[in-house]
Structure formats: structure tokens, C-alpha cells
């Protein structure tokens, strides 16, 4: 905590001289509510319930929010005519809900993605899947987080 405070002071001192563009706060995902994220990414396109097609594998309780494993598996033939184009991971209560976007091609043969997330607090985690015909599907699951994993 003390280290963070020091960094804060030095950054404030450095701020006036720092040209815009030095930092990349603006390039980060915006801090917003999850509804705004969905609106920004998908506009008014309907998002269908995809819980029958999307399998979300993640813990119900995560003791450490800094490392929360998640696996998303979408049932799809992954042929050039019918494949998963992108997979978004969105955590409702994170300050910046948009976590990651994966763009897939049919060549990978199966729409399976695993990674480790940081979750700030107990939250719903959504996987939004976009098929090549533009259909949006969503599945979500709540994860109880004992110790939050991000300050940002």
C-alpha cells in the first residue's frame, strides 16, 4: 500500500510535464457498467441464450481473484460455413468489464479457449459468442470471490 502511495505522488508530480499519449489510460478498456459494455460492443443486436451451446467451466468459489481459471467451450462444427467468429469474456463487476476478445478461424478445429482471469469481487462472468452469421449467444456463471484480484 505504501509503495502504491509513493507511485501516486511521483505520478502527480510528473503529470504536468507528461505529454498526452505518454500514458495509455485512454487505450485501456473504459471503466463502465456492464450494460454500457454490452451496448458498446454489440449495440442493439439481440443476444440469445446460449447456455445449451456454450459450456463455461470455472470455479463457483474463487479464493484468490487474481487467478481464476476459465474454460469456454462452444459446440460448433468449426467449418468455413459454420464457425465461431469471436468469443468475448466479460466480467460484470470488474471496473473494466470487457476482459478479452478472441477471434477464431475455422482452422482451429474446435472452439475451446482457456485462460486465467482477474476478478475484483464476486461477479457474473459472461461469455458472449459471435457466430460467423452474426448471431450472438451468451452464457454466464457467477463466481464468488473471496479476495479480490485487481485494483484497476
Amino acid at each position: 500500500m505504501r509503495a502504491l502511495g509513493c507511485l501516486g505522488v511521483s505520478a502527480v508530480l510528473g503529470a504536468p510535464g507528461t505529454a498526452l499519449g505518454q500514458g495509455n489510460l485512454g487505450a485501456l478498456q473504459p471503466e463502465e457498467k456492464v450494460d454500457a459494455t454490452l451496448q458498446r460492443l454489440f449495440g442493439s443486436r439481440p443476444i440469445k441464450d446460449g447456455s445449451g451451446m456454450i459450456r463455461l467451466d470455472m470455479p463457483l468459489i474463487a479464493e484468490n481473484g487474481a487467478v481464476v481459471p476459465i474454460t469456454i467451450e462452444v459446440q460448433s462444427p468449426m467449418t468455413p460455413a459454420n464457425y465461431v467468429r469471436s468469443v468475448y469474456i466479460i466480467s460484470d463487476k470488474n471496473r473494466r468489464p470487457m476482459n478479452a476478445k478472441f477471434s477464431l478461424s475455422p482452422e482451429i478445429g474446435a472452439a475451446v479457449i482457456g485462460t486465467n482471469l482477474r476478478l475484483g469481487e464476486t461477479t457474473d462472468v459472461r461469455a458472449v459468442v459471435e457466430l460467423n452469421d452474426g448471431t450472438l449467444l451468451m452464457a454466464k456463471q457467477e463466481v464468488k470471490v473471496t479476495v479480490g484480484g485487481c485494483g484497476g
Partner: peptide, 11 residues
């Protein structure tokens, strides 16, 4: 074959 945009929400 695959591309991902990641953020600080990755561990």
C-alpha cells in the same frame, strides 16, 4: 489461425 485482444483482467 487465432488472435486475441487481452486486457489487464488477465492474471
Amino acid at each position: 489461425v487465432l488472435q486475441a485482444e487481452t486486457t489487464q483482467s488477465m492474471s
